[in-house]
């Protein structure tokens, strides 16, 4: 005795959850991908640019903060996703699950 899945996919709470979460996942993945591929393309086509000092006389080159920045970015955007999941998606998931449960019950 179960509710057909296509019916659940039309449930408003479910649709909202999936829509918002997919969009966030997509946008964050794209940010990571674009940042990383740009870095790789810089290495491939403009390696000298990454070797330019950040200030006259400094031993630190542009590539160093850029590379460390990428590591930091990876950590920060996973943090953003987890934070939004905890505060936004988990309640939505609970609502969607509850709606499905009610629908299953009333069908009985």
């Amino acid at each position: 005795m179960s509710l057909p899945a296509p019916a659940i996919t039309r449930n408003p709470q479910y649709m909202r959850l999936v829509h918002v979460r997919r969009r966030l996942s997509f946008v964050l993945s794209l940010i990571m991908l674009v940042a990383y591929v740009s870095f790789i393309l810089l290495i491939a086509f403009k390696p000298a640019l990454l070797g330019t000092p950040i200030a006259v006389g400094s031993p630190i080159t542009v590539g160093i903060p850029m590379g460390l920045g990428l590591i930091l970015l990876a950590f920060v955007i996973t943090g953003i996703y987890v934070r939004l999941s905890n505060t936004l998606f988990d309640p939505l998931t609970d609502q969607a699950r509850e709606a499905v449960r009610q629908a299953l019950k009333s069908k009985k």
Partner: peptide, 21 residues
């Protein structure tokens, strides 16, 4: 030197993608 950083970044950036998708 710097080449080591390139390698480690490549190993790290898979993780956010793994989480999101």
């Amino acid at each position: 030197g710097f080449d080591g950083l390139i390698y480690s970044i490549g190993f790290l950036v898979g993780w956010p993608i793994m989480l999101f998708l």
